[in-house]
Design a protein around this nucleic acid. Structure first.
Lengths: 346, 346
DNA sequence: TATAATTGTGCAAACGTTTGTAAAAAATAA
DNA sequence: TTATTTTTTACAAACGTTTGCACAATTATA
């Protein structure tokens, strides 16, 4: 027995009332008599009624869906953000649509178009590394009531809210830790200067050195070093230049650096120390285990989602939220073999 | 200048034609004169027209959105599936909505309701471990034209397509490998028997032993062992029972087992061998590195998405797709220190 | 030239809901 | 009782698109 979906009209007909009353009753409108509301609810249940969100969305001019745009879904950092954001949004009655850009500006543009076309309530975005400016988003947002929350990788000239790590402090703390452990020549593997997060981390590195009265040597700073291969290669250069420690803007490049140091017969952490960024779960499992700056991606996801809900409720026009970082000290900087890692429970 | 979105009516008015013609022109309908089509396209661009998908969806009775329901997004296995599925679906003009169940049957039910209410074109689902039967899904699907693709964790009494690993063979190959390496008493850490995948893996384990003329001792089989803690605990029991090798249905339990063996002073792989399942990226980084059965999650994601597209196109009523597994041999079973791992490139 | 076939557009209804306004019903006040 | 207020429900339009059918315009056939 194939049955077409029941509508409010079916319910109205069955009860001898009008669709508008049914609609209001189901919405819990106080203007509708308690007894009618009950009758409607009962009949709805009886007929297996399910609201057609599409029709509702069209009429209301906005959906109960939020889109999230990230470079890649299968990156622990992003999937943790998405996971928590989904939890918060679902709790508030919203759904989450995902798009990934693979770091391509072009894909980001396409994703924005799709989301805008679907009249989403809001967009949460972490820009692709290749996106040169906020132009494409500005055009999408302009004149539409769509709400915007940027996280992690943000542009500062866009409306809406932003959620970022305390990147400066994360790097500062990591480098200060290296200094306190007695390392004398500390290099840095950093990212792209189009990206604020990387710039701020570099500043933190610089500040920690200056505070300790140590020179900042640009020959020991390796830009655009965020993958394993470049980490491996540039660690070699750093070692050749006499570094006894490396701060890295990423865990994958730190992993490459660790492999390079070990291959060269250096003892880690006795001869050479490494601290990474992101606290990817694998950092707890390398030998030696790696110190890393945890970015609390779950918190970023929660904060971003909550900021979105506030925008949607009209509670705010935009805010800037800073999520703190946390240095996890492990063997690669002389800590204990702390293999525990929440993300590896299951 | 706040401008409300342009509609096809605006375009029609501007060109002195009707909305229906505009609609057809934009759809590329051949019945519309080439010159009109061009004029419409030009005007649409000029006015910054963007199709209202919501209205389109309502009229057509179906959306261009597919929902995906998984236990957890931030699990490497699932995020890899989602990532590839998203890529395939976007390519075909669909969007992807995500829901996670945290392994709770109740959340799965709610997710299904949401997706059904939003009139999605299809649902891709990997069931929560706690979902006892296909009942909830059956009710959601029943009488609706929504398409269903199950992957990884499936029920066999549901319509639509299924994408699963060759779990039997994955386990069989892994255990056979242990036998060939000379291990004599091989235990198994398996999952829940409500889940077909786990059952099939157990069968593969059993088959490999039988084929080699080795006894299958139920005292060496540890059910419901998929997390690190139970892996650690049950590995202790296995060692006490005289095992010299363990096959595990998961990498996290295998990790626990590895830690247990090392703590007890056993040499891995000389005294004790371990092979896990899923080839999580961390398996390449432990010391010793761990052998594991790769499930090719990306392939699962691609196959599931393509199966969904075929269902949506009406090319098929349902199919069963088997994705092959691949044993990655590393140090924990006497292989070389193969640290390379595609998921760790960046 | 008339007729038929073909091609290109217009008309209007429909998708299922929400909501402003009007009207009916019930309750209260005069 | 009638007038007034309050409560409850109905009416109808709207959201922006798609699409079956009808009709007009054009071209081909007789």
């Amino acid at each position: 027995m194939i049955m077409s979906k029941t509508t409010i009209v079916d319910i109205a007909l069955a009860l001898g009332i009008t669709p508008s009353t049914v609609s209001r009753a189901l919405a819990g409108n106080k203007k509708i008599k308690e007894s009618t509301r009950e009758a409607v609810r009962a009949k709805a249940k009886e007929l297996g009624y399910e609201r057609n969100e599409v029709a509702s969305n069209l009429r209301r001019g906005v959906t109960k869906t939020v889109g999230i745009i990230v470079p890649r879904i299968n990156r622990e950092f992003f999937s943790s953000i998405i996971s928590k954001a989904e939890e918060v949004l679902v709790e508030a009655g919203y759904s989450l649509l995902i798009c990934q850009t693979y770091e391509k500006a072009e894909n980001e543009k396409r994703a924005l178009k799709t989301l805008s076309s679907s009249r989403l309530a809001g967009i949460m975005i972490s820009h692709s590394a290749e996106t040169p400016s906020s132009k494409a988003i500005k055009e999408t947002i302009h004149g539409s009531k769509i709400k915007l929350v940027q996280f992690d990788r943000v542009f500062e000239d866009l409306p809406g809210s932003r959620v970022v790590n305390d990147d400066f402090n994360g790097a500062y703390t990591a480098v200060k830790h290296l200094i306190e452990r007695g390392y004398k020549k500390i290099g840095a593997m950093v990212g792209y200067d189009t990206c604020l997060a990387f710039v701020n981390r570099y500043k933190g590195y610089e500040a920690a050195l200056k505070e300790a009265g140590m020179p900042v040597d640009s020959a020991l700073v390796f830009p655009e070093t965020i993958v394993r291969e470049t980490g491996y290669a540039n660690a070699g250069k750093a070692i050749d230049a006499g570094c006894d420690a490396l701060y890295s803007s990423g865990d994958f490049s730190a992993l490459g650096a660790l492999e390079c140091a070990l291959e060269r017969g250096l003892r880690v952490p006795e001869d050479f120390a490494i601290v990474g960024t992101a606290n990817e779960s694998f950092t707890a499992l390398t030998t030696p285990s790696m110190s890393s700056v945890d970015q609390h991606p779950s918190d970023i996801g929660r904060q971003a989602a909550e900021a979105m809900l506030r925008l949607l409720n009209g509670d705010t026009a935009g805010e800037e939220i800073i999520v703190d970082t946390e240095l996890i000290v492990r063997e690669s900087t002389g800590g204990k073999n702390n293999k525990s890692n929440k993300s590896l429970i299951l």
